[in-house]
């Protein structure tokens, strides 16, 4: 019973892939388990792991967010600009979160309020946000306060602080996943017309999903700022496509309604690990993207096909189980 629940979960294939990739990475480079390597790995990935949760929120309501990369970049360069203007960390942190929420609310207003196509609307905002980011800081530079950067690149009790922070992010996610909002968003994502007929405020829920996604974008931008320690308008650009790839590998459906944030994070872990491994086994950087691309494609195919198969098996099992229960009743 428990076993079936595990393998029929939408994030199961991504979990297997991530575990395999981790084992492979460790066999290639056993030194990865040292605290130093773990710090390096987790700080480089923290922004992506956080951003993929934002993408998951957008996808869940049958949307998509093509502006995540630009949004994280804008938060990043804005945070650095605020630091340079003399703002203390205690003021910059809430400011970045508010900026993230505002960006999310903008996307939400376009998709939920004006009912623009999510793909195109967020594509358009990605232009706006990237333009603003480039206007604030055309080239990489600036500096974040050293103590904060040191903290994020440090460890407590042998565990990287970046990972501890991400546990907090996951706790926040757990709250969202247990909320009324979440199940209603899933209803909207599965079938907006039926959700509306059921009396749900569909457009508000879509607005909410993007706004909350903005919170994770803001957090991601903050983490990127403190991990990198500088502002770079192009650093986070790949996040847009990586978060989509990670979420889909993690079992989040592109047509909304199904999947989980944890699966999406596992997918993002897998996506991040493939390039680390490619580097680790000494593949020339020129071949790296080709290899990573092929692995991603194969991963996607495996996840989607196996997910479909497992779902069928699990439905069949559910029907049988309920038939038995019905006989007993």
């Amino acid at each position: 019973m428990m076993l079936r629940q595990i393998w029929s979960h939408s994030s199961f294939p991504a979990g297997v892939l991530a575990a395999l990739a981790l084992i492979f990475a460790l066999s290639v480079n056993p030194g990865l388990l040292t605290t130093g390597s773990m710090i390096g790995w987790s700080t480089s990935q923290l922004g992506l792991w956080t951003a993929v949760l934002g993408q998951t929120l957008a996808l869940m309501g049958r949307g998509i967010d093509l502006s995540i990369g630009s949004a994280v970049s804008l938060v990043n360069v804005s945070a650095i600009a605020l630091f340079e203007a003399g703002w203390p960390l205690t003021a910059v942190v809430p400011a970045t979160l508010v900026l993230g929420l505002a960006i999310g609310a903008l996307n939400g207003a376009l998709v939920g309020g004006l009912r623009l196509n999510p793909l195109l609307a967020t594509f358009a905002t990605s232009f706006v946000l990237l333009g603003l980011a480039l206007q604030i800081r055309p080239a990489p530079g600036g500096m974040a306060p050293m103590p904060a950067v040191m903290f994020l690149n440090g460890a407590s009790w042998g565990i990287p602080n970046a990972m501890l922070l991400f546990v907090l992010v996951l706790l926040l996610w757990a709250l969202i996943a247990a909320s009324l909002f979440w199940i209603r968003l899933r209803a909207v994502g599965t079938d907006p017309v039926r959700a509306w007929n059921s009396g749900l405020p569909v457009q508000w829920l879509k607005f909410g999903s993007y706004t909350l996604a903005g919170l994770f974008t803001g957090l991601s931008g903050l983490f990127v700022t403190l991990c990198v320690g500088a502002g770079d308008p192009l650093f986070a650009q790949p996040y847009t496509l990586l978060t989509i790839a990670g979420a889909v590998i993690g079992g989040v459906a592109l047509n909304g309604g199904s999947g989980s944030g944890y699966g999406a994070v596992l997918g993002a872990v897998f996506v991040g690990l493939t390039s680390d491994i490619a580097l680790g086994i000494g593949i020339s950087p020129f071949f790296q993207q080709l290899i990573v691309g092929c692995v991603l494609l194969v991963g996607l195919a495996i996840v989607v096909l196996s997910g479909r198969w497992l779902q069928q098996k699990s439905n069949a099992a559910l029907i049988t189980a309920s038939a038995h229960r019905g006989e007993r009743a």
């Binding site: 623009l116 195109l120 594509f123 358009a124 232009f127 706006v128 946000l129 333009g131």
Partner: peptide
């Protein structure tokens, strides 16, 4: 930079 931003805004209007 501003060209990006403004073409994005105009794209929103056109959409």
């Amino acid at each position: 930079a501003l060209r990006y931003a403004i073409s994005g805004l105009v794209l929103i209007l056109v959409l």
